[in-house]
């Protein structure tokens, strides 16, 4: 089990990582999610032992391994740019970690064959890595990282440089492979969909700090802050106020029990709004825009000065642009409040 305790790292005067603590349990796949520049890659380098933190410890099974050099940690790292050895062919790359571990040749060959088959590269043994396509190089990098059965496999934006169609396909394969191997993994990405698809748990970074550490559904259904909501694409954020059990928002006022009085940021979940007036709370306005996105459509309602986004199934019949209509929602599921400091 990997443990991080209060990791801090500065580059010059810039604080890149601050107070990072979380765990990755054996067999678990944890996604490290965050926008670019949030410190994800630096954190990976620290866990791999390629960089030293300014403060804090890296633990394995509760033992401090901060001083252990990277080649003795037994972790695997799959680089974003793959960093394949240009002078070794596919099987030479895959075998590298096993050779370093001093395994006998026969065993190495067996494992290399096994792993190449696992990643769908059976028969590619003798190919030069420079002759491979991007997707194939990605598979070699994965095979190379998996072969020595690392205690922890870290993947740094492994699908980052691939095109979208290939990404979707490889993502599913990658998830299957990691699960089949029971591989404890830390998966770094800036793409929430990738994180949702692959991870048991998501650690979301915001400017070097942990914004939220939760299971994917939990993260999506109960974002811990406006930043998290915004990052996940839940864009209906408004400023509001609670006083005497009533929530005053720019679009409506309705009773709200259980919140302390004060200034709040209101999240109105776009995915919990329906057309019509069946819900407890209603907003009337004019349809200004509808963005078709395949199975779902994002529509925008203009009410007073507020623009409210809501997602409906594309099969739903929408009013015409400019027409007045009503949307409604159940505040318990659709409204989430973040106290403002």
């Amino acid at each position: 089990m990997l443990g991080l305790r209060d990791i801090q790292k500065k580059f010059g005067t810039k604080l890149v990582l601050d107070g990072i603590s979380f765990q990755v349990k054996t067999g678990e796949i944890v996604a490290l999610l965050g926008p670019s520049g949030s410190g994800k890659s630096t954190l990976l380098s620290i866990i791999a032992g390629l960089e030293q933190p300014d403060r804090g410890q890296v633990l394995w099974d509760s033992k401090d391994i901060s001083a252990v050099p990277s080649h003795l940690r037994g972790f695997g790292l799959m680089f974003q740019d793959y960093a394949l050895f240009p002078h070794r062919d596919v099987s030479g790359n895959t075998a590298f970690g096993l050779e370093m571990a001093g395994q006998p040749r026969a065993q190495i060959n067996k494992r290399v064959r096994e792993v190449l088959e696992l990643v769908g590269l059976a028969g590619f043994d003798r190919r030069e890595v420079s002759s491979l396509s991007g997707g194939e190089q990605q598979r070699v990098a994965l095979a190379r990282a998996l072969a020595p059965q690392p205690k922890l496999l870290m993947l740094d934006e492994p699908l980052g440089s691939l095109d979208r169609a290939l990404r979707t396909r490889l993502l599913q394969e990658l998830a299957d492979i990691l699960r089949a191997e029971g591989q404890t993994s830390l998966y770094v990405t800036h793409d929430q969909e990738e994180a949702f698809a692959i991870a048991d748990r998501i650690v979301l970074l915001e400017a070097g700090r942990i914004a939220q550490d939760a299971a994917p559904q939990e993260l999506y259904l109960r974002p811990a802050s406006p930043f998290v909501a915004e990052f996940l694409g839940l864009h209906n954020l408004f400023s509001g106020k609670i006083s005497a059990g009533v929530l005053h928002s720019p679009f409506a006022e309705f009773p709200y029990v259980g919140g302390a009085d004060g200034e709040v940021t209101v999240l109105l979940r776009p995915d919990a709004i329906n057309i019509g007036d069946r819900g407890q709370a209603k907003i009337t306005g004019k349809l200004v825009k509808a963005e078709f996105q395949g199975s779902a459509t994002s529509a925008f309602l203009q009410s007073a000065s507020q623009l409210i986004k809501f997602d409906v199934s594309s099969a739903t019949e929408l009013p015409k642009i400019g027409e007045n209509f009503t949307i409604s929602f159940d505040p318990k599921t659709a409204i989430q409040l973040f106290p403002r400091k």
Binding site: A48, D81, A83, F85
Partner: peptide, 29 residues
Amino acid sequence: RSIRPRLRQAAAVLGAAPRQVLRHVDLPL
């Protein structure tokens, strides 16, 4: 120049000690 630091790091993470990095990465290249 092509022996990018990345390759050395990749070798180290795969368990190559500094001397092995020199032998298996730098020298062959």
